[in-house]
Design a protein around this nucleic acid. Structure first.
Lengths: 214, 214
DNA sequence: AAGCTCATACGACTTTAGTCTGATAGACCA
DNA sequence: TGGTCTATCAGACTAAAGTCGTATGAGCTT
């Protein structure tokens, strides 16, 4: 029995995906989640063999969320599901370490092919962009590695920094002392190879795919 | 005689555009520029009736550059030329106050139609996206207005802030005292309705269309 | 010409950011 | 059991960020 987790905030598409996959696989146990937190919770509670992850989920922060899950569960293969077919995005996703990329426009056949390949341990990307992404952005994957090396606490602090909060406010939100926040901030700078908060925010923003136009 | 300035860092496309327009208009004097600075210089030296502006130019900072030119030469109509046909981008460009949007895939006929319309004072966007953009992003155009209200000196300071520079470094680059930089920074905060540098960088970033992957 | 507005410029001052040292405690691993 | 890593915090310090008041000059109005 294979455990597969579909993480997408759109229930309709989740159902569609579930339908397509139940058709193609008989030994499939499908789990679902609709937010980043929920996804992490399910991953803790179950032994998931493959995660289909939508990038634009509440609390996900796009690539930020992908990195977070990858850091917490390094052994679970992740396939990114997204509406766009932008080659640069796909190369970023793969460069960050995802097992594959499934565009939402993919056919049922393509999807089951992809799931098959990834369960077997292969990287899968759609046919039509396979040529365009032979070259993966070096700078970007290095950046992703650095961010992935952050500890959970540091990760949270960076998220709050990206919201423009002061150290004192971050401490209040996380219920820790400002001194601790400062300690984390210093550690973040070291790991990212920078020396002030502005640069940290810039880097965090780069992992955001769409600007927070809200 | 109509003065038309083509601002694009790609000489080949500049020629193609020039060819298409000379064919359609007989009373056209075409000027060219390949960078933001060059564009500003030409605008100072000549009486330009219409500016065809590519967003991705050296020193342009995308929408930032558009705002800058608009601020400096409020009376010159600007048509944005870009490779993408993204509806959200087009609505942003129009929301910021451009007279029109010409996708690089447009036909010669469409381009001359567009130029005609804009010279007559009408807003022109491609046929196929005309329906999609009836709603212009409120939040975004308010933001653009705020940024456009910055003085030249404040604008420069904000650009350097977005690069992660310290006030002292900004002062060195602009050859003014750190105290002056700080005064500008404070003024920027007031105009943008924020209270620290991180938030300013975030806003500046939002006017950037592509993340600075390099 | 006097009066107004505003951008630019700076110094003095207060607050926040960031570093360093050092300390305690829990988690995990060999 | 000892070692490593992370999270937490304190205190003291340096540097940078941000505020306030103020001065000068350019441009515009009346």
């Amino acid at each position: 029995m294979i455990n597969l987790l579909i993480a997408d905030d759109h229930p309709l598409y989740r159902d569609a995906l579930k339908g397509a996959l139940s058709m193609a696989f008989s030994d499939l146990n499908i789990l679902e989640s609709g937010s980043l937190n929920e996804t992490v919770k399910v991953l803790h509670e179950h032994d998931v063999d493959l995660l289909l992850l939508d990038l634009h989920m509440p609390g996900s922060n796009d690539l930020f969320g992908l990195l977070h899950i990858q850091k917490t569960f390094p052994d679970i293969p992740i396939a990114v599901v997204s509406g766009t077919e932008d080659a640069s995005l796909i190369s970023k996703v793969v460069g960050v370490g995802a097992m594959g990329f499934i565009p939402k426009t993919a056919s049922a056949q393509n999807i089951s092919d992809a799931v098959n390949a990834m369960l077997a341990g292969d990287v899968w990307v759609p046919e039509n962009v396979r040529q365009q992404i032979e070259h993966i952005d070096e700078h970007f994957s290095e950046l992703a590695e650095n961010v992935a090396s952050l500890t959970p606490a540091q990760y949270k602090v960076l998220c709050y920094m990206r919201d423009g909060l002061l150290n004192k406010q971050i401490g209040y939100n996380l219920e820790i002392a400002e001194a601790t926040v400062k300690a984390h901030v210093t550690a973040i700078f070291r790991k990212l190879g920078i020396n002030n908060r502005t640069q940290a925010v810039l880097i965090a923003n780069e992992l955001q795919l769409e600007p927070p136009t809200k």
